[in-house]
Amino acid sequence: MNISSRRVDKATILDVSGNIDMSNSPEVRKALLREIRDKAVTRVALNLTAVEYIDSSGVASLVEGLKASRESGSRFVLFGLSDSAREVLKISRLLKLFEIYDDETQAIAP
């Protein structure tokens, strides 16, 4: 799994590629909390276009990002979910809790 960040206007986009599982989900958590909590970015968008699979530990990292954004008053959004990623959020009954967009343009729109 690889994760990198870039700024687009006032948002930070985190581009992730590869599967998110118990071997690397702490990296996703760390990257999310660095942007949301440490840098206090007002909008963080997680690009999951190149992520095929997310396991429960990956979902837990996303939940931590969501919690941190709610605590800091920022927005944490997801975009580019695969069918599998959408299904695991649905089965965890978390799908409606996240702000989810189809693509980057929608995710960072004012």
């Binding site: 429960s56 939940v63 089965i91 965890s92 009954r93 809790l97």
Partner: peptide, 18 residues
């Protein structure tokens, strides 16, 4: 319970739901 937002404990729900 899944009605609270906190990480952890999701694996078993995923297995049972699948």
């Amino acid at each position: 319970p899944l009605d609270e937002i906190r990480p952890g404990g999701l694996g078993l729900h995923i297995i049972r739901g699948s």
